[in-house]
């Protein structure tokens, strides 16, 4: 379709400014470019390796984590293996780990609620969830998640009763964390695939619970 507002064709109608570099690159952007070009120039890495790693990350989305969670909900033996060694259990489902990180899966229960954060940077279970959301990398989340987790959770709409313990796992070096949320009530008859469709990225970070399916009565 043709957009009369600014006369170009790219499949949607809303007007916007051309997408491009609008400000001069910042300090770290220049450093990254220089570093990357030096590595390529010295033959340490090639452009194909960079492109390939982008493809690896693009192939990882929260749908993988949701599959892991749904399997754990329906298969007690798998759940046990997942909690004992998160990485091995994910590999069992065909999700590869392309780095040396370990995965600890944290189970939410009636008495414990888990939340994950990386106060130092943006460590995140990328092999099973893909890239982290922008807010996860913001200093405000990183600092406040360990100082006032209950207030942060309430801002996500998650109010944790005082008799439930909050455990904040700060991911700093080798270990990545995935929250195994509680299976919502009213899902007893659902199959694994439908269950997986309920599980969101934010639930696996621990900022929200998994909501019961829309249109079903929760008992």
């Amino acid at each position: 379709m043709t957009d009369p507002e600014h006369g170009h064709q790219h499949g949607h109608a809303h007007p916007h400014a051309p997408i491009g570099q609008e400000s001069p690159p910042g300090y770290y952007e220049i450093m990254e470019t220089a570093f990357r070009e030096l590595l390529v120039e010295r033959g340490m890495i090639g452009p194909d390796e960079i492109r390939r790693q982008i493809e690896v990350l693009d192939s990882r989305t929260p749908a993988l984590g949701a599959k892991v969670v749904a399997r754990a909900w329906v298969d007690a033996e798998f759940r046990r293996r997942l909690l004992a060694d998160g990485r091995a259990a994910c590999e069992e489902l065909g999700i590869s780990f392309y780095d040396d990180t370990r995965l600890i899966v944290l189970e939410n229960t009636a008495t414990v609620h888990n939340l994950i954060v990386c106060t130092l940077c943006s460590c995140y279970p990328r092999p099973v969830l893909g890239l982290p959301p922008d807010w996860y990398k913001l200093k405000a989340y990183r600092a406040r998640a360990v100082v006032e987790p209950r207030v942060v959770l309430a801002e996500f709409g998650t109010v944790i009763p005082d008799d439930v313990e909050i455990r904040v796992s700060d991911s700093t070096a080798m270990v990545r964390y995935l929250v195994l949320p509680r299976r919502p009530d009213g899902t007893e008859g659902m199959d694994e695939e439908s269950l997986a469709s309920l599980v969101t990225r934010d639930a696996m970070i621990g900022v929200v619970p998994v909501a019961a399916p829309a249109g079903r009565m929760v008992q």
Binding site: P149, R150, I166, V168, T172, A173, M174, V175
Partner: peptide, 28 residues
Amino acid sequence: YYRVAVAMTEVWPDYAGPEKDGLRIEIY
């Protein structure tokens, strides 16, 4: 390296939440 549990009240003496709230971190 170890998964170490630290109480929130140990990290922040004026922590406002329940005493049982805690932090977990991996330490070499």
